[in-house]
Every structure is written in C-alpha cells, then in structure tokens.
C-alpha cells in the first residue's frame, strides 16, 4: 500500500467516528489498517483525541438553588390548557351549534307540517282554481241557455271543430 501523506475528508470523518466508536466492523478494520500504515493518520487521530480531551476543561454549570422550586411552582401556576370541551370558545361554538340545530329542526318541522296539512285538508280555494275556466266563460255559457243544448252540441262534435283549428 502506498504511503499516505494526506487524508481525504472521508478518511478524517472515519477517524473521528472510529474514536467515537461509531464504525461498523468493516470500517473499523479499514481505519485500523490506515492507522497501522500511516504516520499522518496516527498524528491526526492523536490530535483529534487530545482536542476532544481539552473539552474536559469546560466548566459544568448547575441550576441555581431555587430553580427546581421555581419550575415546579410555575407549572402549578400555569396549568395546562383545559381540554377542548372546556375552553370558552368551544363552549360558545357548542351553544351556537345547538341553537342552529334547534332552528333547523323547527324549520323542517314547520315545512313538513305545512305540506302534510295541505295534502290532508282540502283548501276551498282549490275548487275555485279548478273551476276558473268555467267562471271565466260564465257569460258565454249562460248565453247558451241550457245544459242539454250544450250536451247536444258536444255530441255533434261542435267543439271539436274549434280544437282542430
């Protein structure tokens, strides 16, 4: 294998992942082979490991003495929002919905009642409407004299002539 003088970006990523124990067996073997053969790789991994150790100098911050109590009391003061069914806007919408439901039901009942009533109870005006053609020609019919005369004309198909035209 040729001497490695410079590591590729992927090889450097793998070196760090190797340090972190995040490589699978095959990748681990590949990195170990590179480390065995390359001074550059050994130097790189040493520098990365030492850099990582440097982070141990970072201070560890803890919460202030009153944090726990403050947090727990804040949660007690700010209770979680009530369930949907208990929220004010939902109550308004619910009441509106119930009212609209009743209005719709009353309207349907009214219309249905009107229709049923109309179909069951005869309306005196209906007779008037039915007899409207006779009423409109009442003067002419009276001039004809008697019903028998009209029947005679009907038998002789006197009215057919007019309708044929």
């Amino acid at each position: 294998m040729a001497k490695i003088s410079r590591l590729s970006s992927t090889q450097r990523d793998d070196l760090i992942a190797y340090l972190d124990g995040e490589l699978d067996d095959v990748q681990t073997q590949q990195v170990e082979q590179i480390l065995a053969e390359s001074n550059v790789a050994r130097h790189e991994i040493d520098m990365f490991a030492r850099t990582w150790d440097m982070l141990g100098a970072l201070p560890t911050h803890k919460v202030s003495a009153e944090f726990t109590q403050k947090t727990l009391s804040m949660i007690a003061v700010k209770p979680p929002p009530p369930p949907l069914s208990e929220q004010a806007w939902f109550q308004h919408v619910r009441r509106g919905g119930i009212l609209a439901g009743w209005v719709t039901a009353a309207t349907i009942a009214g219309v249905a009642g009107y229709q049923i009533t109309n179909s069951q109870i005869p309306n005196p005006a209906d007779k008037l409407v039915d007899e409207l053609p006779i009423i409109e020609k009442l003067d002419q019919l009276q001039e004809a004299g008697s019903v028998e005369f009209l029947r005679e004309l009907h038998k002789q198909r006197a009215f057919d002539h007019g309708s044929a035209q």
Binding site: R12, D13, I16, A17, D20, E22, M47, F48, R50, T51, W52, D53, M54, L55, A57
Partner: peptide, 25 residues
C-alpha cells in the same frame, strides 16, 4: 458524523497552537 467531524476540525484548529506548546494539556 460529518457535522461532528467538521466541529472537531474547527476545535482542533483553535486549540492546536496551545496543545503544541503543551501548556493547555
């Protein structure tokens, strides 16, 4: 993996001068 690699490259660039001196270690 890539994010941590870049991060550690950056940390190394910042800290290497002090590591070489041995003072930071």
């Amino acid at each position: 993996k890539s994010l941590l690699s870049r991060a550690r490259e950056n940390l190394r660039a910042q800290l290497e001068p002090y590591m070489k001196q041995g003072s930071l270690n």
